[in-house]
Design a protein around this nucleic acid. Structure first.
Length: 166
DNA sequence: GCCAACGTTGGC
DNA sequence: GCCAACGTTGGC
């Protein structure tokens, strides 16, 4: 059987970091719901990741921004690939955007499934202090992107914080 | 609450 | 296409 058509985009699992402000939507809320839409992303680069690159099964680090302290709080999995963020058409929604229409949606979202909440938060300060993570996007100065690709190396490094503590 | 960094808008 | 003005993000 010829399986050479199976390209990297099919085979490789990708890793992501998704920011959320816990006062708006926290990992506890995701845990309670089990799965959730990731609506409200209004940045083109982040939109492109959700629309074009995220695949079912991709692993997601959940990050609490605008929190005290900010940091990574747990794990989720992409469970539905990009589709139009219809909150953009809801005039009562804070995510309403009149430029986006059902025929020509501008904004997209994915669904994520809760996996686990870490036994403790890994703070941004800790991430910044880890030489193994010096080039991780989230620790870069002025890093505002709310959905970021994460290398497998960085992802495994973050998980290792817990394996070594047991 | 401050403000640096960044993204978007719109006049030209 | 430039870039100043403005708006937003998010750490502190």
């Amino acid at each position: 059987m010829d399986i050479s058509w199976i390209g990297e985009d099919v085979m490789s699992k990708r890793y992501w970091l998704m920011k959320t402000e816990p006062s708006t939507f926290s990992i506890d809320e995701l845990a309670r719901l089990g799965t959730s839409q990731w609506e409200g992303v209004r940045n083109y680069q982040a939109r492109n990741f959700m629309r074009d690159d995220m695949r079912v099964g991709d692993c997601v680090l959940i990050y609490h921004s605008n929190a005290t302290p900010p940091g990574i709080v747990g794990l989720a999995t992409v469970c539905r690939e990009g589709y139009p963020d219809y909150f953009a058409q809801d005039i009562k929604s804070t995510y309403f955007d009149p430029k986006s229409t059902p025929e020509k949606p501008i904004w997209f979202m994915v669904d994520v499934a809760f996996d686990e909440k870490f036994s403790r938060l890994i703070s941004l300060e800790e991430l910044k202090a880890d030489p193994a993570l010096y080039d991780m996007l989230v620790v870069q100065r002025g890093s505002r992107l709310s959905i970021q690709p994460v290398s497998e190396t960085h992802f495994l490094r973050v998980l290792s914080y817990f394996k070594t503590e047991k």
